[in-house]
Structures are given as C-alpha cells and as structure tokens.
Simulated assay, not measured.
Amino acid sequence: MKKIFFALPGNEQLTRSLATKCDAEVGKAEIRLFPDQETYIKIESDVKDKQVMMVCTLNNPDSKLLPLYFLSKTVKDLGAGFTCLVAPYLSYMRQDKQFKPGEAVTSAYFAKLISSFADSLFTIDPHLHRRSSLAEIYTIPTTVLHASSLISGWIKKNVSKPLLVGPDSESTQWVAEVAANAGVPYIILEKIRAGDEDVKVSVPEVQKYADHIPVLVDDIISTARTMVATVAHLRTAGMNKPVCIGVHGIFSNDAYSLLLNSGAAKIVTCNSIPHKSNEINIDRILSLAINEQ
C-alpha cells in the first residue's frame, strides 16, 4: 500500500523529511480556522487505497486534536485504506492514575480517543511512568522508538570528557543506558534527609570528576525546575557548567530562559518538538520504523 504523508500545521519540515526518506508523496490539504475558530479541512490529494501518515507532534495537544480527528475521518471517507498517527511527542501520559478523588485519568481517555480514529501510532519515548507499555491503554498497534542512542552519539561527538548526571534515583536506569551507549561515566545525586522538610543534595565523587563536563539528560523538559535545581547543586559543588539535554523540549512559559540563566552551558533537544534548541535529529529512526510497517 502506497504511503502519503500529511502535515498538521507546524509539522511541515518533519513531514517533508519523512516523506523523502520513505520515498513517499507529501499530501496537499487545506487546514485552517473559520472566523468563529471552528476547523476547516479540505483534502486536495488522492488518498484512495493509500496509507495515510498523519504527522503531528502533540505538545499543546488540545488545539491539535480536532484538526487531527477531522483529517483522519476525512481521508477515510475519501477511501484511504489505513491511517497512521506519527506523533514524536505523545501527550496526556502523566495523569495515569487518580491521585485525588474525582480526578480524570486523562491518559486512558486520550488513548481511547486516538485509538478511535487512527489505525496505528508511532511515537518516541512516551512518559511511561506507572505503565509498562502503551498497549495497556491504546487498542491500536503502537511503535515506541527511543532516542537514547541518538543522545549518546551527540554526546560522544560534541562533549569533551562528559559525565552524565542523574538528579535522583528514579533517573538511574535512563542515565545509565545513555552513559553505557556513550561509553562514559555517570553519577546519581544523593538526597540526604535530616527531617521532613530538611533535605540536602550531595554530589558524589566531586574531586574525581572535577575536570569533566556534567551532562544532564531527561525525557521531558517542561517547567525545567528539576534541571535548574540540579544545575545549582553542581555549581555549588564546584563543577563545570553542565550541558542539559532533553528528548522532548516543551519549555512551558519561561522555562528555556530560566534554565539557560541558571548556569547551563548549553541546552539541547531532539526535534520531536520544533524549538531553537533542536540539535538531535529523530527523522531517520522514525523513517526506518515506518518503512518496516
């Protein structure tokens, strides 16, 4: 089945890249808002019996969901044989349980909605915290790709004497994997609790790694508060300015400038969400996985 790629607004560059790598067509569609802010969709390409790849990274998801839904339903009405959502960043993963009475478990509801109009899903490093896989909530085939090897490659190429740093014990597995792939050492910051509200953070083996460049790695940089705090701990311990790396750079409000001004030497993200910090390209791993479908 021939593939045809459609870009939701803001995803044009990635869509062109994926289509080129997959030797596929870029579909033409008019997607805009009426004056009353309702969505208008018009498909201008032939989609009959084709595999429609809808490229839409899902940061700020609420404004993107209806155009995505309408696009999928329209191409199906026009005879598309299959629809696939390519969402490098997958939203609504954090609220995966009811923390307080009356709360909505939005990750499950969102998954059910996506599964109702897309036939498959490709994404990169979704925030699987209390879930073991997307299959727990998505009823369509899902392909989860990982950016750890890309991040390791970037570190080896761009950072002299890197030292990966995890802000807490929960980050150990992620940091250890990136460090192993890059062939570099790593440390995990230690929290010393003297009382309920008296918690100090120590940096282990400071002298051993005094001449290294600390590298902080996380899957999502949203408010950046965790990284800002970690940068402060490293600088207080007398270490070099760190490089901060995130798979998905959401950078809500003033998070980017806050992190940059906190003492970070550099901020780098994957291009799963378009941002000026993008230096790690996920196009190839996505296209390889799509071609295998």
Rank of each mutant, 00 (worst) to 15 (best):
Q95W: 04
D96I: 12
K97S: 08
Q98S: 13
Q98N: 07
Q98G: 03
F99T: 11
P101T: 11
G102H: 11
A104R: 11
A104K: 10
V105W: 09
V105C: 03
T106Y: 06
Y109P: 00
F110L: 07
F110H: 11
F110Q: 03
F110I: 03
A111D: 08
S116D: 06
F117W: 10
S120E: 15
L121K: 11
T123R: 10
T123N: 04
I124L: 15
P126T: 05
L128V: 11
R130L: 09
R130C: 01
R131A: 06
A135F: 10
E136P: 04
I137P: 01
Y138C: 01
I140Y: 02
P141Q: 09
T142L: 05
T143D: 01
A147C: 04
S149D: 15
I151Q: 06
I151W: 07
S152I: 08
G153R: 13
I155V: 14
K156Q: 15
K157V: 00
N158Y: 08
V159I: 15
P162H: 04
P162C: 03
L163I: 10
L163C: 01
G166A: 11
P167S: 04
D168T: 10
S169E: 15
Q173N: 11
V175C: 03
E177Q: 13
E177N: 12
E177Y: 01
E177K: 14
A179C: 07
A180C: 05
N181A: 13
N181Y: 08
P185V: 11
Y186N: 13
L189P: 06
G195K: 14
G195W: 03
G195D: 15
E197T: 13
E197C: 04
E197I: 07
V201G: 03
S202F: 02
V203P: 01
E205N: 15
E205S: 14
Q207M: 09
Q207P: 00
K208A: 13
Y209C: 02
A210S: 13
D211G: 01
I213H: 08
I213F: 03
I213W: 00
L216H: 02
V217S: 00
I220D: 03
I221A: 14
S222C: 11
T223L: 00
A224H: 05
M227L: 12
A229L: 09
A229E: 15
